[in-house]
């Protein structure tokens, strides 16, 4: 099962999350050359805050600010948790 939140509109991102044996994070961003590290950090911190591991997270980013990435990931995680 995959769970998603967000969109591929500009300044937004689409987050896809699914269960996995180990935690993996994929980032595909139109501004990856400038903000890869910050996007990765936002994802890691949010996973920690939400006490989530063993997931595979994919970020398809269209120039979202950090708080948008965090908000989308939180919703994707909640959608996953609510489905259990």
């Amino acid at each position: 099962m995959i769970y998603q939140a967000g969109s591929k509109e500009s300044n937004d991102c689409l987050i896809t999350i699914k269960k996995s044996n180990e935690t993996k994070i994929h980032i595909d961003s139109i501004v990856g050359h400038l903000f890869y590290d910050q996007i990765l950090q936002a994802v890691k911190e949010t996973l920690d805050d939400q006490l989530v591991d063993h997931v595979e997270v994919t970020v398809e980013d269209k120039g979202a600010l950090d708080y948008t990435i965090r908000a989308r990931l939180i919703v994707a995680i909640r959608r996953m948790k609510n489905d259990v």
């Binding site: 939140a5 708080y67 948008t68 908000a71 989308r72 919703v75 909640r78």
Partner: peptide, 14 residues
């Protein structure tokens, strides 16, 4: 849920 969380994180971080 998407809208509510987006507005919330926006309030907290902007």
């Amino acid at each position: 849920d998407n809208a509510r969380n987006l507005v919330e994180t926006y309030f907290f971080t902007t």
